[in-house]
Amino acid sequence: MAKATLTAEVVMNEAVAAIDGVLAATDVDDFTDDDKITPREVRQFLARLRLLEGVPFSNIVADSALLPIESIRFFYVDRGWTDALTQGALSVGTVNTGDRAQLDRLYGAIEDEIDSEERLVRLPGGEERQAGRAGLMTGFLLRSRAVSGWPGLHVRAYAREPDGNDEEILPESHPDRLKLLRLERLAPAVMLALFDGMPEVVHIEEPKRGLQFGVSLTETASNTYSASIPARNVQTANYVDENGAEVETMAEAKRLPVRFRPGSPGVLDLANTGRAFLDDDSLGMGSTLDGAEFALQMIRFPYRQVFGDPQVTSDFDIAAVFRPTLSKEVGALTTDFERVFDAD
């Protein structure tokens, strides 16, 4: 006759030994079916915190002089800072020494999970999910009228300039393109973008709301403007240069002057502008002018500003920068500060 052998003592001993932390899954990744240790809501909160959601702007940019009006500032994201941020958030859940001991054991795994979660915060439709360890994070802050006047600016960052010219658009999952981790207007005129890697070029593009038509204005004298458009061959839709040869980019194209109506600022004289187009053989417009050909000449692709390599200056010797000699100047600065603060 058999006998049950499970005693209360055995159970108790094992429960006490349970504090010796080993990882237990609490969640499963929807796509990869990997086990996740960190519960989903905690993971998502920490990932958004990593992207500085909710962090007061004065803690991001400590002084307004660092981001003057009409400026763009590129930066690297200090992972140490964001790690400290997540550690602070995690510290809320620890109450006693046992908790902290356990969190110590778990932290490495939590950090890895947040690293991979970072890329899932912003998932635009039609793009593939990207995975992998978190690497270098960079970005820029733009404070400009361009942000307030053109809501919905497109921002693209490329690890390698696409095809060597500025007129290419690659999908976000392309290896040459960097994933945009966060793109947000923090204030009406301040935009923050975070990239998943180190960009070689950054494109900021005018929002596309259908095609637009227009000219390039040049101020020739005080308040006097002339306008021109890049020449295109209407048969092939390619740009043509001074010699009538087709060229790839707008920058190389010949400029065609645009005529205006006297006495009316900004009003185009279309018929005469069009006739001038007809006279130019390299445009292939034939003998009569029609609306489609004219529209093709006047199409303005959304303006795209290209920012090149932001002159990486790495390997600062921290000790050299924080030299005590600075404190002498700082002393003078302090008095200045005091004067200003006293004046308030």
């Binding site: 991001i60 690297y76 200090d78 964001t82 180190m198 200056t313």
Partner: peptide
């Protein structure tokens, strides 16, 4: 702040 002028 979290934004620095060189890779950390």
């Amino acid at each position: 702040g979290p934004f620095v002028p060189f890779a950390t």
